[in-house]
Design a protein around this nucleic acid. Structure first.
Length: 514
RNA sequence: GGUGAGGUAGCCAAAUGGUUAGGCAACGGUUUGCAAAACCGUUAUACGCCGGUUCGAAUCCGGUCCUCACCUCCA
């Protein structure tokens, strides 16, 4: 059965039905980070976008082989390591762990393979040698005795196909290269000669380090072969990185098959309408966000915008000095809501009961509404991963579920109604879980989520859970004494701290806002 | 200069020719000792500007203004 999923293919600039080369299996290569610093919101967005893609495809019954590389050999790593007097590979190893931890924290499943450059030098040598043999690359002896290898861009006739750039346009815009020895300013390095002392590996061309692009060509080929299914990454990689990868990979074979058949690119995270990036210094790290917000709230926030569009990430400084992320706060509120609905539904399901002979009209509406919302949510994902619509449908489902719980509560003496409501609650609950399976949300038991998010919010305000319980007890005493002035006073006091109270028949529950 | 993305109600954000996107905020209602939460309703016939096509355009076409990104490292 063909997949219903359509994705936007940068190669064709069109929406295309995803058709794996081998039915039932999909090979995906995603460009991961250069690990010289902790990941920021942009890395998170990319990881989450493709995590949703992979999850959704897997839920559709396809076996996905998901490969995401770690660039652990690169000039920026070397420079940073020099500053901190650290071994470059020690630094990249440390940052790799941070990256993997942070991505796991926001619900991204670990890829099947996370290859590192430092483990794939032989594959890189092999590909460079093939390129030289195919006359697509040339060795250059430098004046200082070192040897570089360059890719000859003009020999690759379809160069610029992905980014729709013409070689001659590039040439006029290209900055003057410091290295005059290159045959053409557009040629890029496959191998950069260095000394072993200055971080390098012994290669067929002497000591040095690989160029930035060759690793992805070599490693994608190593794990997925030539002509694999999907290549993914950030939009900023389209040129020159992905363009160069295509040139290398395709020039290294004799055939005319493409390196990958679908190219997916996620949009940027912007701050003050400008791209968040290390070089601009306007980045917010994943850790900054998680110090304040719940990881599932952050993930929800990242999913509120279509993955190819820009994502506005605003921060605001409050009067008390705290820096907040209003969009993430709002998203966290939605996650909160969804969890509480799932919890209420679970209670209603646990009530059980028999189905009545005739289904009450309210239940019929709930059943139909749930079925429609579920269908729409999956259809939205199939339409180029429209997570914004998917979340809206999820919200609709939650609203229906909540309404159902309210109804069952109001009519708790009507056994037939409650039996029907309980059965419908199970269906709605399952629908919510199903959608969450596609987008990777709601992975925590409700109690744990509540505990986790409240503990963080209390800590940010320097409050203690036991203080809250004491206040609630004091207020309950005042209420029992009908001293409403005193009880309201306590409530106002708590409200000023961001803590709200809910008086229910089962007792008073407090909750703290983000 | 070349290439691309985008401008949608107070804010965030979908939909791509006709039928409510959704969320947040604000206000009103149901509920409550009063609240909170929840649900319902209102704000909201919104789509940068000017033309054109059409019975009908936020959606298609032409023009124009503005913002952002890539062409140097970037998710």
């Amino acid at each position: 059965m063909p997949l219903a999923l359509k994705i936007y293919n940068t190669l064709s600039r069109q929406l295309e039905t995803l058709e794996p080369k081998e039915p039932g299996k999909l090979g995906v290569y995603c460009c991961g980070p250069t690990v010289y610093d902790v990941p920021h919101a942009g890395h998170a967005r990319s990881a989450v976008a493709f995590d949703v893609f992979v999850r959704h495809v897997r839920q559709s019954g396809v076996d996905v082989n998901y490969v995401r590389n770690i660039t652990d050999v690169e000039d920026k790593i070397l420079n940073r390591a020099k500053e901190s007097c650290e071994e470059p590979l020690a630094l990249s190893q440390r940052m790799t762990v941070v990256y993997q931890d942070d991505m796991a924290a926001i619900g991204c499943e670990a890829p099947n393979q996370q290859p590192k450059v430092s483990d794939h030098l032989p594959q890189i040598y092999e590909m460079i040698e093939r390129l030289i043999a195919n006359d697509a690359a040339y060795v250059l002896d430098r004046d200082d005795g070192k040897r570089d290898v360059y890719f000859a861009v003009r020999k690759f006739k379809t160069y610029g196909g992905l980014s729709r750039r013409k070689i001659d346009d590039l040439r006029s815009g290209a900055r003057v290269e410091a290295d005059q020895a290159k045959r053409d300013p557009l040629d890029f390095a496959l191998w950069k000669g260095t000394t072993l002392e200055d971080w390098g590996w012994e290669s067929p061309w002497g000591p040095g380090r690989p160029g930035w692009h060759i690793e992805c060509s070599a490693m994608s080929c190593c794990y997925l072969g030539h002509d694999f299914d999907v290549h993914a990454g950030g939009m900023d990689l389209i040129f020159p990185h992905h363009e160069n990868e295509i040139a290398q990979s395709e020039a290294s074979t004799d055939g005319d098959r493409p390196m990958a058949r679908y190219w997916m690119h996620n949009g940027f995270v912007n701050i003050d309408k400008e791209k968040m990036s290390k070089s601009l210094g306007n980045f917010v790290t994943v850790r900054d966000v998680l110090a304040r917000n719940d990881p599932e709230g952050f993930r929800w926030f990242l999913l509120t915008v279509h993955y190819r569009g820009p994502l506005q990430f605003d921060s605001e400084k409050l009067d008390d000095g705290r820096v907040v992320f209003p969009g993430v706060d709002e998203a966290e509120g939605r996650v909160d809501y969804l969890y509480s609905v799932q919890s209420r539904l679970a209670e209603l399901v646990a009530l059980g009961g028999d189905a009545p002979k005739k289904e009450p009209p309210e239940i019929v509406r709930a059943r139909q509404g749930s079925a429609t919302a579920l269908k729409n949510a999956i259809a939205a994902l199939n339409d180029d991963l429209n997570t914004a619509v998917c979340l809206a449908e999820l919200g609709e489902l939650a609203k229906l579920g909540n309404d159902l719980c309210d109804l069952a509560k109001k009519r708790r003496k009507d056994a037939a109604f409650c039996g029907a409501a309980s059965m419908q609650a199970a269906t709605t609950q399952a629908a919510i879980s199903e959608i969450c399976g596609h987008i990777g949300l709601m992975w925590t038991p409700h109690d744990e989520f509540k505990q986790r998010s409240q503990a963080k919010r209390l800590a940010l305000r320097g409050l203690q859970s036991s203080d809250m319980d004491a206040k609630v007890a004091a207020r309950n005493q005042a209420r029992a004494d009908k001293d409403f002035a005193r009880s309201d006073e306590i409530r106002d006091e708590l409200a000023a701290l961001g803590v709200s109270l809910k008086d229910a028949p089962e007792g008073t529950v407090w909750s703290i806002e983000v």
